[in-house]
C-alpha cells in the first residue's frame, strides 16, 4: 500500500512553511530518470512523523526519495556530491547530506526535513530568526542552512567539539564556533553574517 497521497498533503503544508521562510524557491533540478536494471526494493521511512512505504530502485538517494517520490521538495539538490549542504536533513536526530546516502540504507529510520521543523502557521524559531535577520537572498540553500543551524545548536549543547574548540572538553558558543560548524553549508548569495546572527538569536532566546 502506498501512502504517497497522504504524505503529499502533509508535505504541501510543509512547503508553505518553507515558502514563508524563503520566497521564490522553484529551481529544483530533475533527478536522473530511473534506468533499467535494478530490482525495486521496499523501503519504509518515518518522514516528519509520518510513516511512508516506498518501492525504490536501490540507486535512489535519500534526497531523491524525499523530493521525487515523497514530493518533499523543501530539501534542495545543489551539487549532489556532498559539497554544498543544500540537501541537509536530520536522520535519527543527526544532520547528514541526503545526497550521499541511499534511501534503502535508512529503511526503518526517522527522517526530519525542513517541512517537519515548522509549519506556515507555526514556524520553528530558527525559521523565524532567518526571516528576521535576512538569513537568505535567493533561498536555495536555506532549507539546508536551517536544518544544519538547528543541529549545530544541539551539537554545541551536547558538548561535541569542533575544529576551532580550544579545549576539547569545554565547548562554548561563539561566532567562530558557529562559522566553523556551518562550513558544510555553502551560500552562493553569501548570507553568512545574517545566518550567524539568526543562530545567535535563537541560541540566546532559547526556544522562543
Amino acid at each position: 500500500m502506498s501512502s504517497d497521497h497522504v504524505t503529499r498533503r502533509g508535505l504541501l503544508r510543509g512547503s508553505a512553511a518553507l515558502a514563508a521562510a524563503a520566497p521564490g524557491l522553484s529551481h529544483a533540478q530533475p533527478a536522473s530518470p530511473v534506468k533499467e536494471g535494478s530490482p525495486m526494493t521496499p523501503v519504509e521511512l518515518t518522514v516528519n512523523g509520518r510513516e511512508v512505504h516506498l518501492q525504490l530502485d536501490p540507486r535512489t538517494s535519500l534526497l531523491d526519495a524525499l523530493r521525487e517520490h515523497l514530493h518533499l521538495t523543501g530539501t534542495k539538490k545543489g551539487c549532489d556530491h556532498g559539497q554544498c549542504g543544500a540537501c541537509t536533513v536530520m536522520v535519527e536526530g543527526r544532520r547528514i547530506n541526503s545526497c550521499l546516502t541511499l534511501a534503502v540504507m535508512h529503511d526503518g529510520e526517522k527522517v526530519t526535513t525542513i517541512e517537519g521543523l515548522g509549519t506556515a502557521e507555526k514556524l520553528h524559531p530558527m525559521q523565524k530568526a532567518f526571516i528576521v535577520h535576512d538569513g537568505y537572498q535567493c533561498g536555495y540553500c536555506t532549507p539546508g542552512q536551517i536544518c544544519s543551524a538547528v543541529a549545530v545548536l544541539e551539537e554545541i549543547e551536547a558538548g561535541i567539539p569542533s575544529h576551532v574548540t580550544h579545549d576539547l572538553d569545554r565547548v562554548t558558543m561563539s561566532d567562530e564556533e558557529l562559522r566553523e560548524r556551518m562550513s558544510g553549508n555553502i551560500c552562493r548569495c553569501a548570507a553568512y553574517p545574517n545566518i550567524i546572527a539568526a543562530m545567535n538569536d535563537v541560541a540566546a532566546g532559547g526556544k522562543a
Binding site: 546516502t101 549545530v152 558544510g184
Partner: peptide, 19 residues
C-alpha cells in the same frame, strides 16, 4: 589521543563526519 580528535575535526564537514 587528542591528536586523533583534532585530525578528525579538521576533516570534511559536520554532516559528513556524522556519516
Amino acid at each position: 589521543y587528542a591528536v586523533l580528535s583534532r585530525a578528525l575535526l579538521a576533516g570534511a564537514s559536520g554532516q559528513l563526519r556524522n556519516k
